[in-house]
Simulated scan of single mutants.
Amino acid sequence: MNERKVFFVTGAAGFVGYYLSKKLLDQGNIVVGIDNVNDYYDVKLKETRLSQLEPYGNFTFIKADIADKERLMNLFAEYKPSIVVNLAAQAGVRYSIENPDVYMQSNVIGFYNILEACRHYPVDHLIYASSSSVYGANKKVPFEESDFVDNPVSLYASTKKSNELMAHTYSHLYNIPATGLRFFTVYGPMGRPDMAYFGFTNKFFNNEPIQIFNNGDFDNDLYRDFTYIDDIVEGIERLASHAPTGDNGEVKHKVFNIGNNNPEKLMTFIETLEKCIGKSLGKEVAFQKQFEPIKPGDVPATYASTEQLQQAVGFKPQTTIEEGLQQFTDWYVEYYGLKS
C-alpha cells in the first residue's frame, strides 16, 4: 500500500482497532477512528489506547456510535474513506445472554448502517469483523470457511453470522467489495479485560481463585485457537489491498478465518500464563483454581483452518502462546505498576 489511503476504522479505541490504526498510521495512511467509548469494560484502557494514537498528525478521532445512522452518513460524506474496517461491535458470548439489546443495536443495526454508508459513498473495500463463534458447536475440525454455520449457540454468534449474510447481500446488490474475518480468540497487551487470560491475571493479583469452565475434566478439556494481536493486524493489513474482485460473475464477498491453526488445551494455556506472570515478576506463581460446569453459549473447541488466508495473501499467524503471553504479562505488570 504505497499511496496514502483514507482508512475508516470503527471501534478504534478497542483492542484490535487500536493496534490496526497504529500500524496503518505508521505506514503513513490517513486514519479516521470512530468509537462510542462505552463502559462495557474499563474506559481508562480505551482512553490509554486513544492517547497513543492522538500524537499522529494523520489520525482523526470521532466519538460516535455506528448505530446513529445520520451521523455515520455525514462522516462518510465528509471523509470519503477508501477502505472501511468495521471492528465496532458488542463483544462477548456470555454478556449476550444478559444484555441482548446492545448486541442488536451495535452488531446488527450498526453494521446495517455501515453497509448503507458504503452503498451511498462507495468504497474500495469493506473489511468487517466476524467471529469463530459462527461455527457453533461444530465437531469437525479444523473449521473451514466452507463449513455449515447455521447452528449458532449464542446470540453474539447469531449477530456475527447475520453480518456475513448482510454483507453478502449488499455486495451482490450494490457491488460493494467486502471481506469478513472470523477471528479466533485474540489476545495480547492492552487486550480486553473481559477475556479469560486477562481476567485470570486480574484474579491472581487480587489473590482470588480463577474459575475454569471445564468441569475439571482434563481429558475432555476445552481447546482454543489463541491468536496473538500482531498476527490479526498483519492479516487485516495484508487483506486491505486484496478486495474480492468478483471474477467469473461471483459476488465480491469473501470470508476468511484468522486463527493460529494450533489449538491449545485451556489448561496448557493457563499453565503457560502462570509461567509468564512468574517471569514478569521474577518469582514462581500458581493460580488458585476452581472448576465449574461449561457455561451456556461456550463451545468445546475452536480450531481454524488458515489455508484460504495463506493462499490469498501468503500469511499465516505464527506467534506461539509462550511469546504472546509473555508480551501480555510484561505489559500488565508494567501498566498496573506491579513490579516489586
Rank of each mutant, 00 (worst) to 15 (best):
M1H: 10
N2H: 11
G14F: 01
G33S: 03
G33W: 05
N36K: 14
N38F: 11
Y40N: 15
K46Q: 15
T48N: 14
S51W: 11
Y56K: 08
F59D: 07
K63Q: 11
R71A: 14
N74G: 14
V84N: 05
V85A: 10
A89H: 07
G110Y: 09
F111N: 05
L115G: 01
R119H: 07
V123Y: 02
A129V: 01
S131Q: 04
S131W: 03
S133K: 03
K139E: 15
K140C: 03
D150L: 11
K161V: 12
K161G: 13
T169L: 14
S171R: 07
G180K: 01
T185I: 13
M190R: 14
G199F: 09
K203F: 03
F204H: 06
F205R: 04
I210M: 02
G216Y: 04
D221P: 03
F226P: 00
I229L: 05
K252D: 05
K254R: 13
N257Q: 05
N262Q: 11
I270M: 06
K275C: 13
K283E: 13
E284I: 08
K289A: 07
K289L: 15
Q290R: 15
V299E: 10
Q311G: 08
A312S: 11
K316N: 08
E322V: 08
Y332S: 05
V333D: 02
V333E: 08
E334L: 15
